[in-house]
Simulated scan of single mutants.
Amino acid sequence: MTTPEGLNTKALKRLCSELGITAFKMSFEGTVGAPDWLLMRRGKHILIELKARKNGKLSRPQERMIDRLIDDGGFEVFVCDSPESIKSAINRGLFGGVNVTEDL
Rank of each mutant, 00 (worst) to 15 (best):
I86G: 03
D36V: 06
G93H: 04
F28V: 13
V79N: 05
E5C: 06
I21Q: 00
F75P: 02
F78K: 01
Q62P: 10
G74I: 09
R42A: 13
M40Q: 13
S82G: 05
G97V: 04
F24Q: 14
E29F: 04
G33I: 02
P4Q: 09
F95M: 05
S85G: 06
I46E: 02
G33S: 06
T22L: 12
S17W: 07
R64N: 09
G20C: 09
K25E: 14
K51I: 05
V32R: 11
Q62W: 08
R42E: 14
L15C: 05
T3M: 10
W37F: 15
E63G: 00
N55I: 00
L94T: 00
G56L: 10
L39T: 03
M40A: 13
G30L: 03
W37A: 02
R53C: 05
A89F: 03
G6A: 10
L12K: 07
A89G: 06
A23S: 15
S88C: 05
R64G: 00
Q62E: 15
K25T: 13
I48P: 00
A34F: 11
E76H: 12
E102R: 12
L38F: 12
D36Y: 02
E102F: 05
L47T: 01
R68K: 14
I48L: 15
K13T: 06
R92T: 12
E29M: 03
K13Y: 03
Q62S: 10
I46K: 07
W37E: 01
W37G: 00
D81Y: 14
I48A: 04
L104I: 14
N99R: 12
S59P: 02
A52T: 03
T2P: 03
K10P: 00
K25V: 12
D72M: 12
S85K: 14
A52I: 04
A23N: 10
